[in-house]
Each structure stands twice: as C-alpha cells, then as structure tokens.
Design a protein around this nucleic acid. Structure first.
Length: 186
DNA sequence: GCGACGATTGGCT
DNA sequence: GCCAATCGTCGCC
C-alpha cells in the first residue's frame, strides 16, 4: 500500500518509524532518512520535559514543522515536530543517506567520503545547511521537501544515543544494514 | 547578572 | 577510547 503523506499527528515514536526510508531535502540537497530518534514531553531526555521555554517553543507548536536547536554550542540539529499541537513531541533526524546534491554536501562538510556526510545530527545539519532560521518553519514548503517511503522499509530500533536519562526507551530507529547510520545497531 | 551543562564531533593518545 | 571545543539556554542568586 502506498503511503501518501507522513502523519505528523501520530505519537513521536510512530512518526520516527514512518520517516525511515523517506526522502528529505533542503533546497534540493539531501537524501533518504536512515536514522531517527523520538522524544516527547513525558520523556526525561527530551528538551520539552521541563515545559515550554523560549528555546523549545517550536516543539510545542504545529506538527509538521521544524525544531532547530544548537548542540554543544557548535552544531545545528534538526527535528520534526509531531503529535498533537502543544504536546511538545518531536523526532530528531540523526542520519541521511546522501543522494541529491552530493558535491554541495562534500563542499559544506569538507570531507569527500559519502558515508561521513550525514552520519550524525550535527554532520547532517552542516551538510544540509540547517540554520536556526528554519525553527518553526513548515516542512511541506520551500526550502524543504519530504517524500514518504514508497515501500515499507526494514526498520530496526534500539536505545537512543548521547543522552543520560531514559536509556531504557528503544526510541532510536534505523534502516536495517544501512552503512550511513551514525552508529550501528546492536 | 552569572555559572553549569548539553539529543555532538573530531582529533589525539 | 578519551577529551577538549564552544555558546545558547536555563535556573538560581
């Protein structure tokens, strides 16, 4: 059965699962989403766990929009807001298989190994030129383009990476066997 | 107003 | 495998 659109109203872990295999580009640069992580407000590891603040406001906004935050003062990371509006849930895009605009991504990243272009939230942000201006912008409008997977992807899940809370939730999703993951699944 | 810390990365040991 | 880089945000004084 063909999926016509991502349902951003679904719980974050379902959206995170749906997004694996989807094609995502920013200004025509990007590829296939191969790794995501889900977060929601009841989740101690989520930015929204402490309630709405100036920083995380976009995640409490309309589903289907972007939430962009700075990590370690260095990297820009991209999330998709999901769940009902006001839920403070979202999906962190962790890795993409580079397909479109390879040369552009190589120049932005300063590396020429394809598997190192988008294999991590910060790298992906650099390769797709994610900026804080994208915060709160709808994903169905320029410069974004999101095309759902046309066939069911072989999705695996496991514990999330780089967090110190709620380590037990298996809310990291990935495309099975992909060489473009930030880290392999066990 | 100020100090602590992080959904990471990449370079060095 | 370990650790520094680097700065916006949050929470408290």
């Amino acid at each position: 059965m063909k999926i016509s659109a991502i349902n951003f109203l679904a719980p974050s872990h379902e959206v995170a699962h749906q997004l694996i295999g989807a094609t995502f580009t920013v200004s025509g640069v990007g590829g296939i989403i191969v790794e995501t992580e889900a977060y929601d407000q009841l989740d101690p590891a989520s930015h929204t766990f402490v309630g709405k603040t100036k920083r995380n406001a976009a995640m409490f906004g309309a589903p289907g929009c972007a939430y962009v935050y700075r990590s370690y003062g260095i990297h820009w990371c991209l999330n998709f807001v999901c769940g009902a509006e006001g839920h403070g849930a979202g999906v962190l895009i962790r890795a993409i298989e580079p397909i479109v605009g390879l040369q552009t991504m190589i120049e932005r990243r300063g590396v020429d190994k394809i598997s190192l272009l988008c294999s991590g939230p910060g790298k992906l942000g650099q390769a797709l030129a994610v900026v804080h201006d994208f915060n709160g912008m709808p994903l169905n409008k320029f410069p974004f383009e999101l095309i759902p997977a046309q066939k069911p992807a072989d999705v695996i899940c496991g514990p999330r990476i780089g967090i110190s809370k709620a380590m037990d939730l298996p809310w990291r999703f990935g495309l099975s066997g992909s060489p473009f993951l930030s880290r392999p699944f066990r």
